[in-house]
C-alpha cells in the first residue's frame, strides 16, 4: 500500500516536472521567434518537409474518408428519405470535427514523428552540441523554424483534406448513388457558414499545429542521445501529440463551441 502511494507520488511529481520542462521549452521557443535572424531559409525547407511532402497522404486520406462518409450517410439518410441532406451533414461533420482532427493525426504520424527523429538524430550525433559550441542557440536554429512550419502547414493541409473529402463524398453520393449534384452542393452551401465554421476549423487546426510543433521539437531536443532514445522519443511524439490533439479538440469544442 505504502509502495503504491509512493509510486503514485513519484509519477505525479515527474508529470509536473515534465509539464514544467515543456512549458520552459515553449517559452524559449516563443522568445526565439521574436529574435533575429528570421531563419527564413530553414523555415521554407521545414515547410516543404512538413507540408508539401504530406500533401499526397492528406489528399488520398481525405478523398477516402469522404467516400466512406458519402456511402455511410447516404445509406442511413435514405432510410428516412432524407438523402438530400447529405451535403449538409458531410459539410458540417468534416469542417467542424473530422477535418482538423484527422489531419492533425495524419500530420502527427507523417511529419511530427519525422521531425522528432531528425532533431533526435542531430542530438545523438552531437550536431546540437556543435551549434552550442559555436554560440548558436539550437532552439532558435533548429526548433523554431520547424515549429512555425508545422503551425502554418496544419490549417492548409486541413483545408485540403476537407476539400478532397467533399469531392470523395460527391463521387459516391452523386456519381454512384444517383443523388442530384445541385442538391448536394446547395445543401453544403446552406449548412456551412464560412466565417464561423470554416474560420473556426482553420483556427482549431492551427492550435493542433502549434501543439504538435511544440511536442515534436521538445521530444527531439530532450531525447537520450542514442538510437534507442531517438526511437522512444519518436514513438512518444506520436502518442503524446495524438492524445493532446484529441483532448484539445474536446476542450475547444466544449469551451468555445467550435
Amino acid at each position: 500500500m505504502t509502495g503504491a502511494i509512493r509510486d503514485l507520488g513519484t509519477r505525479s511529481t515527474s508529470l509536473v516536472e515534465g509539464l514544467g520542462r515543456i512549458s520552459n521549452f515553449g517559452g524559449a521557443l516563443v522568445a526565439s521567434m521574436l529574435k533575429p535572424p528570421s531563419r527564413f531559409g530553414f523555415f521554407v525547407r521545414a515547410l516543404y518537409d512538413a507540408g508539401v511532402l504530406s500533401v499526397a497522404l492528406v489528399c488520398l486520406s481525405g478523398f477516402t474518408v469522404g467516400m466512406v462518409l458519402g456511402l455511410q450517410l447516404y445509406t442511413t439518410l435514405a432510410r428516412f428519405g432524407a438523402e438530400e441532406g447529405l451535403g449538409a451533414v458531410v459539410g458540417l461533420s468534416l469542417i467542424r470535427e473530422l477535418g482538423p482532427v484527422l489531419t492533425g493525426l495524419l500530420v502527427t504520424g507523417r511529419a511530427g514523428s519525422a521531425m522528432t527523429a531528425e532533431i533526435g538524430a542531430m542530438k545523438a550525433t552531437e550536431q546540437l552540441d556543435g551549434l552550442r559550441m559555436m554560440a548558436i542557440d539550437p532552439i532558435h536554429f533548429v526548433a523554431m523554424p520547424r515549429a512555425i512550419a508545422l503551425a502554418i502547414s496544419m490549417p492548409l493541409l486541413n483545408a485540403l483534406f476537407i476539400t478532397l473529402s467533399f469531392a470523395g463524398a460527391y463521387a459516391v453520393g452523386v456519381s454512384l448513388q444517383g443523388l442530384d449534384g445541385g442538391v448536394y452542393l446547395s445543401g453544403l452551401e446552406n449548412a456551412v457558414r464560412f466565417g464561423e465554421d470554416v474560420g473556426q476549423s482553420l483556427l482549431k487546426s492551427c492550435i493542433f499545429g502549434i501543439l504538435l510543433g511544440l511536442i515534436a521539437t521538445y521530444k527531439g531536443h530532450t531525447c537520450a542521445p542514442d538510437s534507442a532514445g531517438v526511437a522512444r522519443a519518436t514513438t512518444s511524439t506520436v502518442v503524446t501529440a495524438s492524445v493532446c490533439i484529441l483532448m484539445a479538440d474536446y476542450m475547444i469544442t466544449a469551451l468555445w463551441g467550435v
Partner: peptide, 17 residues
C-alpha cells in the same frame, strides 16, 4: 562569450548533415 573564444572538434565531426 566564453565559447566565442573556443573551437571544438567533435569525435564524429558533428557537421550539420
Amino acid at each position: 562569450p566564453v565559447r566565442m573564444g573556443i573551437g571544438m572538434l567533435f569525435q564524429n565531426g558533428a557537421l550539420l548533415d
